[in-house]
Amino acid sequence: MADQNTLELLEDYLHGRLGEKEKIQLETQLKSDGTLREQLETLRLTLSGIREIGLRQEIRAVHRDFMAKDASASVPEAQSVFRRSWFRWAASLLLILAFAGLGMLQLHSTKIANSHFLEYRLPVQRSEQMGDSAAERYYQAEDWEKLLEWVENPAVASQKAYFLAGLAAYKKGSYARAIEFFDRIRLMNETTDKTLFEQETDFYAALAYLQTGAHGRALELVAKMRDDPHHLYHDAFGKWDQAKIFLLKLKKSR
């Protein structure tokens, strides 16, 4: 592992911040020093990874924002109605009738989310990990602020900590933030050996998506839960709920 000075020198080299003399000196050294070449390549890969993480986070944030707002605010490309076939007209008419029905029912995805919300109860047996038990304490005390503050500070990355933080954000009404925590759990489950809180995350992420109006995402998770008879939340949503979310999704995409 490179010391601080070497690491900073390599970083300056990658960013083109070295003077001509220093650059030539380093390049000469690189030619004969395999370890240094390896350190440089590792640094290059790591830094490009960090930048990509930042960029992906930024794109995801805009994406959520864009999807949550009424997509009709965007300017659609001009399209002549005459290009539509009779089939499309018939389909549109059916949809209009369906939406009229929806209107009568005053259907709204937040209502579906609120009516399906289940309090998450912590198991009686406490976590062995120190960090997790702190999260549990904040959760039990319903101190959402403290929990959300705590989860960002120490090195507490665990699926449980993120799950409880996701619930805390949900309770506060910060649904996009809740989704962010649930996404972190998915990423951890994909990249580490332990798959934890996967099914719980499916359920609460579905509710959070409903709250933000991301019906497509919610529908995907609801279908996943309903399709798997062994899923913890298999019975949480019924067929009719699934159909309602589907109609809401169609309504929004129009």
Binding site: G49, P154, A157
Partner: peptide
């Protein structure tokens, strides 16, 4: 592949470390 692995390792850092690295290298 490389990115997914690095993202997983990055996720395992503490919150402050993640913020510092993103503020410096991304922002």
């Amino acid at each position: 592949e490389n990115f997914d692995l690095i993202a997983g390792l990055f996720e395992g850092l503490g919150g402050r470390c993640k913020r510092i690295l993103l503020l410096y290298y991304y922002k």
